[in-house]
Design a protein around this nucleic acid. Structure first.
Length: 412
DNA sequence: TCGTGGCGAGGAGCTCGAAT
DNA sequence: ATTCGAGCTCCTCGCCACGA
């Protein structure tokens, strides 16, 4: 879109990054706040076909046993350095458990050049007491096939590219071309499991198949170029209970979670209060929408576009059947002491979270705002309030009050 | 058992642009 | 012209899983 920093993919319902982004938005703190799920786990669940849209999250409880022990090596998209592997990780991976990553790092740190390192690996450590230096047995392993050391020496860098590591890895059978093919293939998958790993290698070269089948996955795991994401019992329990608890979230949070363009937390809250139910909102015409507080033509058009898509309305029906709230529940005001006041909450508080304080503001008739302006009534400041907010408060002469003063004000 | 490392939670600031 | 929310990035710290 012209003049905009953000580009919206027109292929909304079939573009994987956009679908994953919508799921991430839905589970985020400001929306449904589903604990223990985040970017990495959402991507794994999506890539493995467990979650194709936000509605599928509510079916995960039926697949609990499939999720436990689900594991992937996760390649982050757009990471330019993904191919560069520090030499200590290469040594760690080649040691097949004989040397720790920490120990490999210590070895590398003690060297100023690759020839120092090769020298150290070739001579010094083999004479050490193996109990003091676990590396010793590893070094003798490297020495059995001098070509590993000589190749590292020839490369003369403290990092290797992925294809160079693969070339070292399958040292007797892998050609330069095959290692480049493999490196390219790994770079261009987002995540893969042990089964995917065998599949890739079977495709490429039968000669190295057996070797990789026995050692490959663990080797790449050790290389740590890829992040390992795994679902253990505790994680799965936390995710399932987080998803169940999200059914208690009020309508405005659900509405925000749908990820409709221009509908953030505040707009969602206004819409929920004004239209009361999802059906009223779906059926509202543009002119009815723009009559609502702070809703202009852009937001109204965005809403009608969203609700005009049958996939979106069927998703909403599915979420409704799962037990999510799609009608507004009026919260009882504790007082009207903050009526007409715009309040900024900033910093850390010992006994309250910021969200709790914002809820207290609403329950007492006040309005939460996120940035300081001349219209701000006061700032409720905890430890380490934003320095820019402080500057603006000084500039506009806005009162800054402590949590103690705020509590006293509410309890008047 | 303890150290390590990644993910997620919770906080911040900044820019852009919609609403008024 | 001004206000302030949306949408983004960045930072720190605690939790969890894994390996030595």
């Amino acid at each position: 879109m012209d003049g905009e920093a953000n580009h919206y993919c027109p292929n909304e319902s079939n573009c994987p990054p956009q679908i994953k982004g919508k799921i991430e938005h839905f589970i985020s703190r400001k929306a449904m706040d589903i604990e223990s799920l985040g970017e990495g786990k959402v991507k794994l669940l999506f890539d493995k076909g467990y979650v194709q849209n936000i509605g599928d999250l509510y079916d995960l409880k039926y697949k609990k046993n499939d999720l436990i022990n689900l594991e992937t090596i996760n390649v982050f998209e757009g990471d330019d350095d993904i191919e560069k592997i520090p030499i200590e990780k290469v040594l760690f991976a080649f040691s097949y458990g004989k040397v720790s990553l920490k120990e490999a790092r210590r070895l590398v740190d003690s060297c100023n050049s690759i020839s120092d390192l090769v020298g150290l690996l070739k001579f010094d450590l083999t004479s050490c007491n193996p109990n003091r230096y676990k590396s010793a047995s590893f070094i003798s392993l490297l020495n059995e096939d001098g070509s590993i050391l000589s190749k590292i020496s020839a490369i003369n860098r403290f990092y290797l590219y992925l294809d160079e590591v693969i070339e070292l890895f399958g040292i007797h059978n892998v050609t330069k071309e095959v290692s480049q093919q493999l490196a390219h293939r790994f770079k261009n998958v987002y995540s893969f499991s042990k089964a995917d790993f065998f599949h890739i290698n079977n495709e490429i070269n039968n000669n190295i198949r057996d070797f990789i089948r026995d050692n490959g996955f663990d080797f790449f795991r050790k290389l740590n170029t890829f992040n390992v994401i795994s679902f253990q019992q505790k994680t799965v329990d936390n995710i399932i209970s987080g998803i169940e608890e999200s059914k208690q979230k009020p309508f405005e949070k659900v509405l925000f979670g749908l990820g409709i363009r221009y509908v953030g937390a505040t707009v969602a809250s206004n819409l929920a209060k004004t239209f009361r139910t999802i059906d009223n909102l779906i059926n509202a015409r543009i002119e009815e929408l723009t009559e609502a507080d702070e809703i202009g033509i852009k937001i109204a058009e965005s809403l009608t576009r969203y609700f005009g898509n049958a996939q979106n309305t069927s998703l909403i029906r599915k979420l409704g059947r799962s037990g999510l709230k799609f009608s507004y529940e009026q919260s009882n005001l504790n007082s009207t002491i903050l009526e007409g006041k715009s309040i900024v909450v900033s910093g850390k508080f010992e006994n309250f979270s910021r969200d709790e304080l914002k809820q207290i503001v609403i329950e007492n008739g006040g309005k939460n705002v996120s940035s300081v302006s001349m219209k701000t009534s006061f700032i409720l400041a905890g430890e380490n309030m934003g320095p820019e907010k402080y500057k603006k408060a000084q500039k506009f002469n806005i009162q800054i009050i402590s949590i103690e003063d705020f509590v006293a004000l509410i309890n008047q």
